[in-house]
Design a protein around this nucleic acid. Structure first.
Lengths: 358, 358
DNA sequence: AGTTGATCTTAATACGTATTAATAACTCCG
DNA sequence: CGGAGTTATTAATACGTATTAAGATCAACT
């Protein structure tokens, strides 16, 4: 009766032995597949009883091996540190990813060891650790294109948070619609009478920057304003931005409004704060300022910058959903989606000064 | 050359085919077992090259089934929602766990997927999905003891964040030293001349509450004060706490100071705020108040409550470290560790009122 | 009685890996 | 040249589950 197969955890074989049936039958009863209701009620009861007596719980590893799916979604960042800090620019993305992932029955794997290692590469040690997960959400500004390309080549399922393009392969992404948001910002300024709008862009040609520039041009076109190439300026280091600098643009080029890409650190906002502190230029009386994105963190934003804001949490959710759609075969081609940014009124733009003295 | 076995994720068989060896050889090279150095250098290189080209990573489930580890640490919470929100009481624990986990070269698996209904369960669906990880950090207030016991029984490696005891088995935990912290708070109050200190405790006999009560008694003993059992009161719902209530205690029992366990939601602090708003009792002039723990952080802490604060981030780190020690065999017996709380001066305690009217 | 069906159960297999025992190839040496 | 010893590789197997195809049993109907 009570044969002692007490070695480790009870398995379906143990149950089978005890109930006098085969392992297959046990599996049918336990996991209740399609053919499950063909099992006679008496045997079903016997199996369940035996399972209960032995305290059986199914082995996840075996199930997932069999099911060819780990039900794990990965998150990897190209940033130097994993965005668990609430003030991190990327943190809200993570929150969104987690939310959708959990809701869809997957667990979330944070590839933070890879991130924190000295040799921080997806392929550290020659292996693609991301493959542990069924698929992966990637994020971060300074992407390693070679690694992205490698992932595409071995067609590992992933979704990038932010638009990224590769010369050869296509990849899936969920992006913020920088083009429309920037364009709208320009037309809003134009509506306030601004005609000389300076656009300070990042120096690298990353997609987010390219999109903003495209939006800038599009907005000017919509507003019927000419594009003055000299009003598009690259800013290597936002710390460069000083009151003198700005006065120069206002006096020399007749600039009345400035669009700036915020950085993910505090350099830009500190620079702006510094300028405001000098009181040589008043925002928005002397010059309107709008940020093309979110300033870092939700620090006490004393000056309430006029800006647009990325739906970061929703982008995270959408990325997870998209990835799971890919994994479960509801989609296959690379997917692209752009989400609208929201406009934050703020108080740093106003009507254009009516021409004026320096 | 480039045969197209492009189906899903590459396996050792795929590598073997490509490198012209057997699967066994691949396994030897990859996982580097004991016999691993018998492999000829040339074949080793061939295998590694093939693996790199295919972007191979060992299948977690298969390794787990085989009884192997994957450098994966899990986190599971008994709370209804995973603490990714920065304002969540449990959030700092998560940050600490992530930090230490990454630093020690492990990746972090968040078991956030909620399979079915309201009550979270480790064994939902008759599976212990935690086992896909090497070990797990558990947290949450309303623990399911039966599941904890089951985990102990199947000796799955885990560490609880907070002291938890089970009738039968032993488990490892990292806790806050509530006893000492509460005791110190009592002696501090005694130093201010308080002799009648009311202790409002949670109604359930959970370990954190038991520890605080022990600390209360110990503190009184240290201060040479008698324990009046009627000054130990259970508070079912913190919302019960009203000005009338408190006045009653002050007038009838000569209470001059109150110790309260904060809840993880805002009920307690709102109740206190409400009392302060009535202006019928002034803190600390009429009565000193000290919190035995951290109030929830989704309130701007206008009144700066005197309290002690748990080293939550450090507790998280310590839990991860402890778990990894267990996994890597540096420890085996269940480990217990208590970390000191820090004292937050605040402004809600003061000298005892010199006896008094009404 | 033999064919067909219906109902229940099980043998066989695959999932991907790690390991043990066995084989093959090669060297050494009398 | 044949046996012993060494070295490099592989066949076979186990881990625990889910599923498919096949088998067994019995009832019903021609």
């Amino acid at each position: 009766m009570s044969l002692p197969p007490r070695k480790g955890r009870p398995t379906q074989v143990d149950i089978a032995r005890r109930a006098g049936v085969s392992q297959a039958t046990v599996s049918l009863v336990i996991s209740g597949g399609a053919v499950s209701d063909q099992v006679a009620e008496s045997t079903r009861q016997a199996v369940l009883a035996a399972a209960a007596e032995l305290g059986y719980t199914a082995n996840v590893a075996a199930r997932r091996l069999r099911g060819k799916r780990n039900h794990l979604l990965g998150v990897y960042t190209f940033e130097p540190v994993f965005p668990v800090d609430q003030r991190d620019f990327y943190y809200p993305f993570l929150v969104g990813v987690e939310e959708a992932t959990a809701a869809l029955g997957y667990d979330l794997l944070l590839f933070s060891s890879v991130t924190s290692a000295a040799d921080r590469s997806i392929y550290a040690g020659g292996v693609n650790r991301l493959r542990i997960a069924d698929g992966c959400v990637l994020l971060g500004r300074n992407v390693r294109r070679d690694e992205l390309a490698a992932l595409v080549r071995e067609d590992f399922p992933f979704v990038f948070l932010g638009r990224r393009e590769l010369p050869d392969g296509e990849l899936s992404y969920v992006a913020a619609d920088y083009v429309t948001a920037t364009s709208d910002m320009v037309t809003t300024l134009a509506g306030h009478g601004h005609e000389r709008i300076l656009y300070l862009r990042a120096i690298e040609d990353t997609e987010p920057t390219l999109d903003r520039e495209a939006g800038y041009r599009q907005g000017l076109a919509t507003a019927g304003l000419p594009v003055d190439e000299s009003l598009i300026q690259a800013l290597a280091d936002p710390a460069e931005l000083t009151a003198e600098h700005l006065e120069h643009w206002i006096a020399r080029y007749g600039v009345t409004a400035v669009l700036i890409e915020p950085t993910e650190d505090t350099r830009l906002t500190s620079a702006l704060d510094a300028i405001a502190a000098t009181a040589r230029i008043r925002f928005p009386q002397d010059c309107s300022i709008a940020l093309l994105g979110d300033p870092p963190s939700w620090t006490p934003e004393r000056p309430d910058w006029t800006r647009f804001s990325l739906p970061r949490v929703e982008m995270g959710r959408e990325a997870a959903r998209m990835l799971i759609d890919l994994l479960e075969g509801r989609q296959d081609a690379p997917q692209h989606r752009s989400l609208r940014c929201s406009f934050v009124t703020g108080d740093s733009i106003g009507p254009a000064p009516s021409a004026g003295p320096s």
